[in-house]
């Protein structure tokens, strides 16, 4: 069995993307029909979300259908997406970035803005990115916390959470 060309690999990927979006569109449309009332007068609150769901179903069917028809065809190499890496390491990094952001939000409420920021920066640099220059990590952690505190908290008067874990 011959190996897939980049063009054929792209068609396979489009097929998967189209099918995933098709399912999303069907689920969205179902939820819209089940939960949003049609409204009493004129075009109600249901109309737009419903049309969007139907539109997504139609367009993703076109994407998937086109990719299915071209799956064994020949065409130009689509080139890369401009983004780095592939596979598991990328997926791991997506999850890690999400977790870092979520943990930052969680910590901000509990430990307060300054500590949460310092911990998030230090964790991201030291643990996630493997940065081993202690002065850089400490400088960034303290610099970012104090810098944002100064600019947002003191200069612009924005609210910075104090947290509930520490008594001060």
């Amino acid at each position: 069995m011959s190996e897939r060309t980049p063009y054929q690999a792209e068609q396979r990927r489009d097929l998967v993307v189209g099918l995933v979006l098709l399912v999303l569109g069907i689920v969205w449309t179902g939820i819209v029909l089940a939960t949003i009332p049609p409204g009493n007068y004129g075009i109600g609150p249901r109309a737009f979300p419903l049309w969007l769901g139907v539109g997504l179903v139609a367009l993703s069917a076109i994407l998937a259908g086109g990719a299915w028809l071209r799956r064994n065809g020949d065409g130009e190499d689509p080139g890369d997406s401009g983004l780095a890496g592939m596979g598991w390491p990328v997926f791991r990094m997506v999850v890690l970035v999400c977790l870092i952001l979520a943990a930052y939000g969680f910590l901000m409420q509990r430990a307060g803005f300054l500590l949460a920021t310092a911990l998030t920066v230090a964790f991201s640099l030291w643990v996630v990115l493997g940065e081993r220059r202690p002065f850089l990590v400490a400088g960034m952690a303290i610099g970012m916390s104090v810098g944002v505190w100064l600019v947002f908290g003191q200069l612009l008067g924005a609210y910075l959470p104090r947290g509930t874990w520490l008594p001060f």
Partner: peptide, 9 residues
């Protein structure tokens, strides 16, 4: 990492 903080805050 600096953008993570700016983004989150």
């Amino acid at each position: 990492v600096a953008i993570v903080i700016m983004c989150g805050f």
